[in-house]
């Protein structure tokens, strides 16, 4: 018996997007952030704060897990972009699939990439810094926040790839988003009052801050009501963005001609 349509689309998405280059971007880049930034900045932070040998790595590790949500989102947007660019979108849509199935195929593939990448980063983190505080509940919170974040960033990238017409524009926007979202969040450094005012605003409205904060709290067993509020805001933003992305995609021209 043939697998359901959505399963077939997800299998296809994984199969055509797990080449070496894609995996290096998806997993290698965050792993390099974790290792190079973790050990590199550790010495600076140790020198200025006198922190323990693994304290910055321990801070950074959950942030890098959260960063997988952004990477998964970019993979989702790139899948739509590449399928449109190389004619497979139109080809699939004259096959036995609906537009919505195709869209959800991409979203769920992004989700799987996000969760898989986060699990690998968690494995690396456990090896590098250990985890004596991670509980089942904490792990569920980590993966839950990353799942929500993957859908958020997947929707954002799908929206952009549905609207933007040129490859260069798409790539430029994607690089800019990754940069701003990544470095104006609590992935690499904590939010504190000494940050410039503009950066504080960017930190506060950046969904990746919510994901990183919640993942970190889940990983270190320090969950609070504030994390629940952050997830609620993120969930609302995700629903809005998903609706916008779906509308833009349904209205977009599927052909390459």
């Amino acid at each position: 018996m043939a697998a359901p349509n959505l399963t077939r689309l997800i299998y296809r998405n994984i199969r055509v997007n797990t080449d070496v280059a894609s995996l290096v971007i998806l997993l290698g880049l965050p792993a390099m952030y974790l290792i190079f930034f973790g050990y590199g900045f550790q010495s600076v932070i140790q020198g200025t704060t006198g922190g323990s040998a693994t304290s910055y790595l321990a801070f950074l590790a959950p942030g890098i897990m959260a960063f997988q949500a952004v990477m998964a989102g970019t993979v989702g947007g790139s899948m739509l972009w590449a399928d449109r660019r190389w004619g497979m979108l139109a080809q699939l849509l004259v096959g036995p699939f609906t537009r919505i199935e195709y869209l959800f195929g991409i979203m769920l593939t992004s989700l799987l990439f996000g969760l898989g990448g986060a699990a690998i980063m968690m494995g690396i983190a456990v090896v590098l810094v250990g985890s004596t505080t991670l509980t089942v509940t904490g792990a569920l919170v980590v993966f839950g926040s990353i799942a929500l974040g993957s859908i958020f960033f997947g929707s954002l990238m799908l929206l952009i790839s549905a609207l933007v017409k040129s490859n260069n524009a798409y790539n430029s926007i994607q690089v800019l988003i990754i940069f701003f979202v990544n470095f104006a969040s609590t992935v690499f450094y904590p939010f504190n009052a000494s940050l410039p005012g503009a950066l504080q605003v960017l930190f506060s409205i950046n969904p990746l801050t919510y994901i990183a904060d919640t993942a970190r709290a889940g990983y270190t067993g320090t969950l609070s009501g504030h994390n629940g509020l952050e997830m609620l805001v993120l969930a609302i933003e995700t629903v809005v963005l998903l609706i916008l992305a779906t509308r833009a995609y349904l209205r977009s021209d599927v052909s390459t001609e």
């Binding site: 004619g87 080809q91 004259v94």
Partner: peptide, 11 residues
Amino acid sequence: VVQQSESFDFT
């Protein structure tokens, strides 16, 4: 359907 434009997966 064999479309006029190219369409392939990266494989």
